[in-house]
Design a protein around this nucleic acid. Sequence first.
DNA 1: TATGAATATGAATACACATTCATATTTCTT
DNA 2: AAGAAATATGAATGTGTATTCATATTCATA
Lengths: 208, 208
Amino acid sequence: MPKATFFNLPEAKRARVIDAALDEFAANSYHKARVTAIAEKAGIAMGSFYQYFTDKKDLFKYIVDLTVNKKLEYINHDMMANKEKYGFFQLLREIYLSGIRFAQENPRLVAIGNALLTDKELQQEIWGEYQDTSSAFFQQLLEVGLANGELDPQMDSALVAKFLTSLTYSLTDSIYKDGEIDLADLESEMVTIDKMLYFIENGIKKRD
Amino acid sequence: MPKATFFNLPEAKRARVIDAALDEFAANSYHKARVTAIAEKAGIAMGSFYQYFTDKKDLFKYIVDLTVNKKLEYINHDMMANKEKYGFFQLLREIYLSGIRFAQENPRLVAIGNALLTDKELQQEIWGEYQDTSSAFFQQLLEVGLANGELDPQMDSALVAKFLTSLTYSLTDSIYKDGEIDLADLESEMVTIDKMLYFIENGIKKRD
DNA sequence: TATGAATATGAATACACATTCATATTTCTT
DNA sequence: AAGAAATATGAATGTGTATTCATATTCATA
């Protein structure tokens, strides 16, 4: 958590620091990102940086926090509050669509989030334990679907939750070309999402 | 590729270097692994290391090569040569089972492989482009299954291949607890594999 | 056994940044 | 306005380890 000094800063200056950090962390992995560059871009002295943050990790955690919170703003709150009213696959679709909306408007946050998601070691370094929040979230969703009788009751929900987490990364990968989402082609992104939902729903065995 | 000097080395000494490298890279991520430690464990001078390898990356690539080749030895060659004779899911199952056999006998290689698999940035650093061999392999397998009429013909095989790749990482994750496979519990590992195959085959929708 | 080529050695070098620190400047308090 | 508290500054320090290099030793060959 940044120091009080940082939050006492005039709005504009604080924004400059955050903006510089987003630029640097979006363009470079955590380890390659340089405090020097952030300070320079933000127009503050090196010493000031350590007036605001205990260290580089402190800033990075803060940025990750901002990212997570921002992302949460994008999922339809009504849907999540009333899970039972909507079908499981409808909810899942909404989650992925919200991911696209988020990506369209926050490319830098997506880049930072992806880098974190695809580096387990970094996750451990940032949050002590490697806690699979995402997997827990999907499991909860699955439980609701099971209760509704929509889903195959013989499934191992904990395991399937891991699969869904993993597939979600994969989807991300298919949709973002080097951290950039193709804004022009929303249509094709939705098609990809629907193909994935179909895969999750039906598997790949031929049926007649 | 290591220098000629390395391959001219007496068998035993070369083996010592490889062994030291496996120890170090299995215990530490690529970046944290220290050339110093490898030289020391192998009982060679620092200078000698650079007589054998152009740099740390050179050695690491070589170790990854060894790993890949070793792993290939474990998959049933007969099955892969006659893909058509076996069903798609049978082949897939064989692939995963071979992964377990490999892991049982090569824990250090598994650790190194996993670290590489869960760090996309490292992959790019090691192989210039991020070329998804694994995905190409699955796609080829899918094509055969499609030709056989076993698989849903409306699938997008390139996309599904990515999904399978991703699920494979996930399976790895579920089976190896911090790089260690529980040798005592082969039974439960096979169950996990079968649950995953079921998921891939049928999806999660309830059927009657 | 002499001579050049190949190999071995480990101390010295280089480097890239994060972090600290002593000092200067600004802001707040009364 | 004076003194105290908070904030700003950027040069100097520290760290860790990869890589180089000048020199010594061993090996191959004639």
